[in-house]
Amino acid sequence: MAKTFIFCEFNNGKIKKGSLELLTAAKAAGAEITALLIGPGSTEAAPEAGHYGASATFVCDSESLKNYNPMAWSKVVSQTIKNSGCTVFLATSSMTAKDLFPRVAAQLETGIASDCTDLEFNGDTPIAKKPLYAGKCKAQVNFANSPIQMILMRPNQLPIGEPDTGGHCEIKTLSAPEIDDRLKITDVKKGNTDKVDLTEANVIVSGGRGMKDADNFKLLDELAETLEATVGASRAVADAGWVPHSMQVGQTGKTVAPSLYIACGISGAIQHLAGMSGSKVIVAINQDKDAPIFAKSNYGIVGDLFEVVPKLNEELKSVLN
């Protein structure tokens, strides 16, 4: 079976769910798995990779790699991947991975597909599918002239298996590369939200022009609080400056795939629909019964969102608590 290399991301000593999904998929396909963790705390998190199927795990546990740096990280990653003799590479399609691995692919003279949503194995060959045109269609990814097939998968797409703490996983320590003087990270400015990012959110509450004013997004913040959701927005309101661009869902914003997407006062421009059509269940609240958003929705409420949203929040609070 193919040697598979998996880049594992971790947080507070635990490997992130997206990485566990990939370990599970590769293990089920019978792959020989090598894992890699980078940054301070990687030694502590490493054994978990073994529990989910890795037979060897590399760590580069250095304070100098506390912050991501594409120049430094790509060096250690490329060399380790190359030395492993793998033919398949998997990682979660996170902001770090999407920045880092195309550079690694260049160093390895190989192909890469980011943001994939489907992954199966046909013997040794991984078959991935990827949304194109922000989800207006989907296609199968085929590799050619590629010594290593590099696939970045969106999180929340695959099941996670049961850990097995009985197996043996060798942990190998890598030395940290020197930081390239030409590019240094000098600061990390924390965002104003500790909510999960739109791209990883399980529930999204989104507002459009029907919100009428930036201040009215408070209503959605309250609903999001109850649902443990992340708040998103349409292009129109991001362009109007009511919310930061980082909250925009759509073809020129973020492509999202939550279990539940609640669209409030969003008419449903085609570029917005493209970005959220991967949502499992879509609810639309809009005054205009002919709004295109309803054609993409599972449930629709034609009405005044300023009346409906507070009632919905009340109802959810009483039911969920």
């Binding site: 599918k129 990827k130 989907k138 296609a139 590799f143 309803f294 449930y299 629709g300 409420i301």
Partner: peptide, 28 residues
């Protein structure tokens, strides 16, 4: 080129939307 695409597919059709009638409190 090292990556090509094949087997294009459109997203599956959604069943028709279920409209919820009534007063806001009932709809909620």
């Amino acid at each position: 080129s090292k990556v090509t695409f094949s087997n294009f597919e459109l997203p599956p059709e959604k069943p028709p939307v279920k409209f919820i009638e009534g007063e806001p409190a009932e709809q909620a």
